[in-house]
């Protein structure tokens, strides 16, 4: 694994990002990133039809945000995308960059950090490597992932000593340490205070771009979705109501008027009824 070099949080101001090398290949898409293809996906729990005929294609390396009211099926959809759950009908396929079937290899960040209180921070991150990684190697890779989320100096702390935002950064490092092809974010910033949330959005966006993984974010916060994602879908009653590209380049500025317009139209769609 190549360590991501340390970047000052404001480094992007000076350095415009280039996503293509000399040959024109997209550098943002790492070889491991997976593409998703959903066809006529239904999910029922008893008589309750949570998802109704979802068709969705997601390119490798794309960042998708799913928004919608509570109970619209967005968390269920995320569980299907990560292979945690199987659809009642229809297909969920994972494809590699060449379009061949691939392993999902998804990592999840939950709303709560879900750190193991009896492991120190580095060992918690090492959990993300899965069983079977040698201890010394696991610790050194964990250390690199912690540096990516700017918590290198906390490697030996107990999780109980960290603040809420720091714990969630550890959870993020745990999800990133194995360089997953698909990153699933289930309202990862939902429990944080407003200011911590904004810093975390910037951090999340940066590490995700460096990793280049395909990402799916479920959130209540439309501004967050628009700030981070390349594409936002609105879910209502188990159907995709709105599917919107957010073409602005990353990193994005909080309070950008174009983004605010997109945010407005998404909110109107969620709240507007029809």
């Amino acid at each position: 694994m190549v360590a991501a070099p340390y970047q000052h949080p404001l480094a992007f101001v000076a350095a415009p990002e280039s996503h293509r090398d000399a040959a024109g290949r997209n550098l943002e898409t790492p070889p491991g990133a997976v593409a998703l293809r959903l066809r006529k996906v239904d999910k029922r729990f008893g008589d309750n039809r949570v998802l109704r005929g979802i068709d969705l294609d997601l390119e490798a390396g794309q960042f998708l945000a799913i928004v919608g009211k509570s109970g619209c099926g967005k968390s269920t959809l995320l569980r299907l995308l990560t292979g945690l759950d199987q659809p009642t009908e229809g297909r969920v396929e994972f494809l590699d960059a060449q379009g061949r079937p691939a392993a999902g290899n998804a990592r999840i960040v939950f709303q709560e950090p879900r750190l193991l209180p009896w492991f120190d921070v580095a060992d918690n991150v090492a959990v993300g490597l899965g069983p079977g990684t040698l201890k010394a190697e696991a610790r050194s890779r964990a250390q690199e992932a912690l540096a990516d989320v700017q918590l290198a100096e906390k490697a030996r702390e107990w999780p109980s000593r960290l603040s809420g935002g720091q714990r969630q950064r550890v959870a993020l490092a745990r999800a990133l340490v194995s360089r997953p092809g698909l990153l699933a974010l289930d309202e990862p910033l939902g429990a944080l205070d407003a200011l911590t949330r904004i810093t975390m959005q910037t951090l999340l966006g940066r590490v995700r771009r460096e990793l280049g993984a395909t990402a799916v974010l479920v959130t209540h916060d439309v501004a967050e979705a628009v700030h981070l994602a390349d594409r936002v879908i609105v879910l209502e009653d188990g159907r995709i109501k709105l599917d919107l590209a957010v073409p602005q380049t990353h990193p994005r500025r909080h309070g950008d008027p174009d983004l605010a317009r997109i945010e407005g139209s998404i909110l109107a769609s969620i709240l507007g009824g029809d």
């Binding site: 990560t82 945690l84 990592r107 999840i108 939950f110 879900r114 193991l116 959990v127 993300g128 069983p131």
Partner: peptide, 16 residues
């Protein structure tokens, strides 16, 4: 339960 679910998702089973 949340930690157990996390562990399973991150590939732990049985003895681990």
């Amino acid at each position: 339960r949340d930690l157990l679910e996390m562990g399973r998702i991150y590939g732990m089973s049985g003895w681990t």
